[in-house]
Write a protein that binds this DNA or RNA. Structure first.
Lengths: 167, 167
DNA sequence: GTCGTTGTTCAATTTTGTTTGAACTAACCG
DNA sequence: CGGTTAGTTCAAACAAAATTGAACAACGAC
């Protein structure tokens, strides 16, 4: 694509399609919508930054999808706006350092769940203390403790992950 | 639940529901269907092994769901059949060591994607070699190389992850 | 001002994935 | 055998999630 010139549609060449498909599959594994993979994939093989409109034309997706997809990719730190261009419209470039990508995903998608998980376990522990039957209560508090151990492990693993992915 | 005795339905108590909900949320993060979380969650707080029928009655899910859910949980190594019981029907217990759970998830859900990713990148590299324009080809092969680096990092991280989660 | 351009929002629609339930196989028992 | 119970399979029904597109806001240019 690169030079994107108006015109209502633009067909990707086979290599571009192959790369886009690669990222579509990739993000599905992460539980993100396909449009995210399409957008990131196209930016990834583009030699020049692309505008929202370029994405709409090349990928045949709606403006709505492109807008939402870019918003999410920005929040993940996976794309950034290109500097310079005194243009009216904004152009986007992909972040390609694994460290940055993994960091954003962990921060936005994993940590929040870990945190809310810890909260729920705290509540669970409270409920457990209110159980009458002592044998049952003992069993349950052992299980809750197991959950707490899991969460601690999770918390310990993330920083190591980030360090390893940062080369 | 525990002693499950026939009878068409069984209502979980509030604590049981809280735990089941916890796991339902948990597995959604992993991209697995809610029934998987319900089943595992109920097994997790049950002091005794449960049969497929117990799950159907306590969780108000269909036999089909329970059967498919148990199959997946078995393939993940997250439940095992209880020993002993010379019973006709089989009873299930949860695996509760994080190491085992994470190991199964990595083996069944992550590794296959990593492998197929590597294959696709190899094909991508071939396609890239066929590009005519040298400047474009150079750019693309740099990007493909970047993908290869990502995959190598991924491959290096998994064993470390498993080791860390194994306490 | 108002017209064209860029981008966002959100309800309606479409797509995707999960769950159901009826039909089925298998295994045991008398 | 025929009857009962345990569990699987899979097409159809359903639910959840993504995508669309039309209405809208924001900003310049003229």
């Amino acid at each position: 694509m690169d030079d994107l010139l108006a015109g209502d549609q633009y067909e990707l060449d086979p290599l571009e399609r192959q790369v886009v498909a690669f990222f579509v599959d990739g993000v599905r594994v992460l539980g993100l919508p396909r449009s995210i993979g399409e957008i990131y994939g196209l930016l990834f093989i583009s030699q020049t930054p692309l505008s929202l409109d370029d994405l709409v034309r090349c990928l045949h997706i709606s403006k709505g999808s492109a807008s939402q997809g870019l918003r999410m990719l920005k929040s993940l730190g996976a794309v950034r706006e290109a500097e310079g261009g005194a243009e009216r419209r904004t152009y986007y470039q992909p972040a390609i350092e694994l460290k940055r990508l993994a960091g954003g995903f962990i921060r936005e998608q994993i940590r929040p769940h870990l945190e809310s998980g810890k909260t729920k376990i705290t509540r669970l522990a409270e409920t457990t203390r209110g159980i009458d039957d002592p044998a049952r209560r003992k069993f349950l508090s052992e299980r809750v403790e197991r959950l707490e151990t899991w969460m601690r492990s999770g918390g310990r693993v993330l920083p190591v992950l980030q360090k390893l992915l940062g080369q």
